[in-house]
Amino acid sequence: MLNPQLDADGKLKHLLTIEGLPKKILTQILDTAETFVGVAERDIKKVPLLRGKTVCNIFFENSTRTRTTFEIAAKRLSADVINLNVNTSSQSKGETILDTVDNLIAMHADMFVVRHGQSGAVHFIAQHVPDNISVINAGDGRHAHPTQGLLDVFTVRRYKPDMHNLRVALVGDVLHSRVARSEIHALTTLGVPEVRVIAPKTLLPAGVEKLGVQVFHDMKAGLKDADVVMMLRLQNERMSGALLPSAQEYFKTFGLTQEKLSYAKPDAIVMHPGPMNRGVEIDSSVADGSQSVILPQVTYGIAVRMAVMAILGGGA
């Protein structure tokens, strides 16, 4: 089966998931992002690469934050940006996902940035667009959020350049997390030898160890000697019910506090994809503490998204 993200020459055509992308392409994206970091510090924070191109942010699931970072990235590349929040209720009135996409194709958009609540929805769209349109996955269901995974490894690489000698721990709701899946694939593809997940059994998907991670159910053991601690967001609706008894108990057992962070290496960095639930998955003193790189993640997120768009937007 051909990888739907690559063209016949093995070049990136769409960015749908990190899984299955060669290390060479991930490194190319990260290296290119490195060159975009400086652009944001200049007087004129724009380069003319995508001048005259139209980037369309299609969000079937609302997310102002992610949409904004893609919008800034596209604008810094001089693209025109259209934002479209597809109300799910208008979908239930009869317009299908393909109707929506066909309309935007007819408007001559060049690049689609898509978020959708269903796993695989962005693959589905990528299969139906004409050849000249590139599709970027901005998060589909529980499946993938590749630009987040890339910006996370970009951040790791900036603080801990020796990727081949790292111990990374992901903490929290892996079961429902597209971010976790993309982070795991990005880390393992780039050669990080030890990736751990720490969570109660109710928040881990079946066969998670087959993704190449070690499974822990205890913070003390799981964080021991970690270089990087990646926290995952716990959705409100999952804090109490049949998956977890309460947010309080979760914070007590799996929330990241200064005390639990002390199990990791003293120079370990703490990351979070945002938005954070302070006092549920992470204590404020850690989130705002000296080991936190949560805000740099946001800054790098723009450079990484610029890099992805710049690589997809060029070439005949």
Binding site: K11, T35, V47, P48, A310, I311, G315
Partner: peptide
């Protein structure tokens, strides 16, 4: 300067695979 982001052959040839950071 690298100027990769300003080249006029981007539409035909895409981005260089190893752009180097500009630093002014």
């Amino acid at each position: 300067l690298d100027a990769a982001f300003y080249r006029d052959d981007y539409a035909q040839r895409g981005l260089k695979t190893e752009p180097k950071p500009s630093n002014i």
